[in-house]
Design a binder for these strands. Structure first.
Lengths: 208, 208
DNA sequence: GGACCCTGACTGAACGACCAGTCAACTCTC
DNA sequence: GAGAGTTGACTGGTCGTTCAGTCAGGGTCC
């Protein structure tokens, strides 16, 4: 009835291709990702991929951050709805452990992070993007801490919330790498327990 | 005079090539490393590379861990000579911060770690190797802690040394990633200060 | 309403660059 | 002269990118 903005926007090819690309990257790795693979996942010819993206390289760069961006937005929205700071912190930890929650593709998210890091080593634009994504995530941990101090759930005599969030986030990165790489002693559950324990000691979140 | 094991072992081509390869990988990245590049660094023809290694893939796999292995051995030897546990711990931190000590190629070491991680995602053999290298390193942090408790430099009421070493190591990994990727706020010096501070709080190492 | 044209999404064959791996020949040393 | 070490031209395959062409839908004009 109302004027359609476009004549047939039934599917957003741009986004479809980005999703397919990040899928292929997680499956095969950035280096082994071919345009042909992405085209196949889309059920489309290779030519079309280059019709929507100026080059394979640009597409891959966008695809790398695309999934992480989606994940962050989804998570931030979810956290905001939880009334308890302890629950928020616990959820942050849960969502940081690769493979802990089967319903989320957390392993995939983390695999993409690894590829982002490697690319950021030599691509300044990707380095900027990575810093932004990382900062945003650490920021939301810090906000959980501040929120908990506000509600009285966390003690206020502990160090600066931003510093704590950064240290805590860094530790979770390091642990996540081990979990993701199938370390025999660092299982998802063990990482979760460690994070919960460190949260109690550093932030003062008593997980009763 | 004494019997030479080989007729002209003046140079160990095998090791020469490994060194050249890890050099090229740190410079160009694993994915962009070509046999030609490695040959050029060695001042040798491409054919020779394949004369010493059965395939490019095997060579790269060996090269990735080669440099890290050398680094570990050198460091372990150095630490053993230091009488003070505090000094040992401080040195461990120093050596974990990418780009802090210009005389060491610490940035290169870390860049190789990133590549190891990515490869370990899909190569079980590399995953095993990575776990071994990582375990060894964390183990030597734990030994420093235990040594400090023995000498009375560190308090003994703190948590288990192995657990501490693992948490501390994980945090350093996470921070090192940021430093390595040229984060604008996480500078080498800042990482060093943070690690020193956390060591004081977690391990009880008073850095007077 | 039907003939016509236009647009743009989409195809897939073809091109060309790149590169791992091969191999026949050459060299140097014992 | 035998054999290990070394060369570098060559091959075969892979893959990003290009491009000429197809096709479906919609708008326009009579």
């Amino acid at each position: 009835m109302t004027t359609k903005t476009r004549q047939k926007p039934q599917r957003d090819r741009h986004q479809e291709i980005l999703e397919a690309a990040s899928r292929v990257i997680t499956d095969r790795g950035l280096a082994e990702t071919r345009i042909q693979d992405i085209a196949e996942v889309c059920g489309v010819s290779p030519g079309l991929i280059l019709y929507y993206f100026e080059s394979k390289d640009r597409l891959l760069a966008e695809a790398l951050t695309f999934a992480n961006d989606q994940f962050y937005l989804r998570t931030a929205r979810e956290l905001r709805k939880m009334p308890s700071a302890k629950d928020r912190l616990s959820r942050v930890i849960e969502l940081s452990v690769p493979g802990l929650l089967p319903e989320y593709d957390l392993l995939d998210e983390w695999a993409l992070w690894l590829e982002i890091w490697v690319r950021a080593l030599r691509d300044p634009e990707m380095a900027k993007e990575r810093e932004m994504l990382d900062r945003r995530w650490v920021q939301s941990i810090a906000e959980v801490i501040r929120y908990g101090r506000q509600t009285g759930e966390f003690p206020t005599d502990a160090p600066d919330a931003d510093d704590l969030a950064m240290q805590f986030g860094a530790m979770m990165d390091g642990l996540a790498i081990q979990v993701m790489l199938n370390d025999t002693v660092m299982t998802p559950q063990r990482m979760f327990d460690i994070c919960t324990d460190v949260a109690r000691r550093l932030i003062g979140s008593t997980s009763d």
